[in-house]
Amino acid sequence: MFKHRNIMSGSEDFSYISQSVQSAFLILGTGKEGEAPVYNPRMQQKEEIFKYGASLHANVAIEWLKQQHK
Protein backbone atom coordinates (compact mmCIF):
# COMPACT_ATOMS: atom_id res chain seq x y z
CA MET A 1 0.00 0.00 0.00
CA PHE A 2 1.01 3.65 -0.20
CA LYS A 3 2.74 4.95 2.90
CA HIS A 4 3.00 8.59 1.84
CA ARG A 5 0.01 10.88 2.11
CA ASN A 6 -0.65 14.44 0.92
CA ILE A 7 2.22 14.41 -1.54
CA MET A 8 2.01 16.82 -4.46
CA SER A 9 4.01 17.27 -7.59
CA GLY A 10 6.94 19.64 -7.18
CA SER A 11 6.27 21.18 -10.58
CA GLU A 12 3.08 23.10 -9.80
CA ASP A 13 3.24 26.62 -11.30
CA PHE A 14 0.15 27.95 -9.58
CA SER A 15 2.08 29.63 -6.75
CA TYR A 16 3.90 31.76 -9.32
CA ILE A 17 0.64 32.89 -10.93
CA SER A 18 -0.97 33.62 -7.56
CA GLN A 19 1.72 36.19 -6.80
CA SER A 20 0.15 38.42 -9.47
CA VAL A 21 -3.60 37.76 -9.20
CA GLN A 22 -5.96 36.82 -6.39
CA SER A 23 -6.08 33.05 -6.36
CA ALA A 24 -7.25 29.95 -4.58
CA PHE A 25 -5.88 26.44 -5.04
CA LEU A 26 -7.99 23.43 -4.30
CA ILE A 27 -7.56 19.71 -4.70
CA LEU A 28 -10.80 17.81 -4.89
CA GLY A 29 -10.01 14.42 -3.42
CA THR A 30 -11.59 11.56 -5.27
CA GLY A 31 -9.87 8.61 -3.68
CA LYS A 32 -9.66 6.86 -0.36
CA GLU A 33 -6.92 6.92 2.22
CA GLY A 34 -4.27 4.36 1.37
CA GLU A 35 -4.95 4.49 -2.38
CA ALA A 36 -2.60 6.01 -4.94
CA PRO A 37 -2.40 9.82 -4.42
CA VAL A 38 -2.97 12.64 -6.91
CA TYR A 39 -0.55 12.71 -9.88
CA ASN A 40 0.17 9.01 -9.46
CA PRO A 41 -0.38 6.90 -12.59
CA ARG A 42 -2.28 4.35 -10.47
CA MET A 43 -4.68 6.96 -9.06
CA GLN A 44 -8.34 5.99 -9.42
CA GLN A 45 -10.86 8.76 -10.17
CA LYS A 46 -14.30 8.52 -8.58
CA GLU A 47 -16.36 10.36 -11.19
CA GLU A 48 -19.40 10.74 -8.93
CA ILE A 49 -17.55 13.44 -6.98
CA PHE A 50 -16.86 15.62 -10.05
CA LYS A 51 -20.24 17.32 -9.64
CA TYR A 52 -18.95 18.96 -6.45
CA GLY A 53 -15.95 20.46 -8.23
CA ALA A 54 -18.13 21.70 -11.11
CA SER A 55 -20.59 23.21 -8.61
CA LEU A 56 -17.78 24.96 -6.74
CA HIS A 57 -16.38 26.51 -9.92
CA ALA A 58 -19.83 27.62 -11.08
CA ASN A 59 -20.58 29.21 -7.70
CA VAL A 60 -17.27 31.09 -7.66
CA ALA A 61 -17.95 32.41 -11.18
CA ILE A 62 -21.50 33.50 -10.30
CA GLU A 63 -20.37 35.29 -7.14
CA TRP A 64 -17.57 37.02 -9.05
CA LEU A 65 -20.04 38.19 -11.71
CA LYS A 66 -22.38 39.56 -9.00
CA GLN A 67 -19.49 41.58 -7.56
CA GLN A 68 -18.78 43.14 -10.97
CA HIS A 69 -22.26 44.72 -11.08
CA LYS A 70 -22.04 46.58 -7.75
Rank of each mutant, 00 (worst) to 15 (best):
S15W: 02
F2P: 02
H57L: 15
E47H: 04
S18G: 15
I62A: 12
L28K: 01
I62F: 11
W64M: 06
S11L: 12
A24T: 15
H57N: 14
N6T: 09
I62H: 12
E47I: 07
A36P: 02
Y39L: 10
E35F: 02
M1V: 06
E47Q: 04
V60N: 06
K32E: 10
K70E: 11
M8W: 07
E35V: 01
P37V: 06
E12F: 02
S11I: 06
K66R: 12
V38L: 14
I62G: 01
L28M: 13
I62P: 00
K51C: 10
S20E: 07
A24Y: 13
V38E: 04
Q45C: 08
G34H: 01
S9H: 13
G31N: 09
M1H: 08
Y39I: 02
A54N: 04
K3C: 04
P37A: 07
R5K: 13
K3Y: 09
I7C: 10
M43R: 09
E33N: 05
K70R: 11
K51E: 11
Q45I: 14
K51I: 14
F50C: 00
Q22N: 12
K3R: 08
A58H: 08
S20V: 05
Q68S: 12
F14H: 13
N6S: 13
Q67P: 00
Q45A: 12
H57G: 11
P41E: 10
E63I: 01
H4A: 13
S11M: 08
I49D: 06
K66A: 03
A36I: 03
M43T: 06
L26K: 10
S9F: 05
D13G: 03
Q22R: 09
V38H: 15
A24N: 11
A36R: 03
F14W: 14
Q45T: 07
S23F: 13
I27Q: 08
E63D: 05
G31T: 01
A36N: 01
H69Q: 14
S23N: 14
S18R: 09
G31M: 02
G53H: 07
I27F: 15
P41Y: 04
T30F: 00
D13H: 03
G29M: 04
S9D: 12
E12C: 07
R5E: 13
H69E: 15
A61R: 01
P41W: 05
W64S: 04
E47Y: 03
G31F: 00
Q22L: 07
K70P: 02
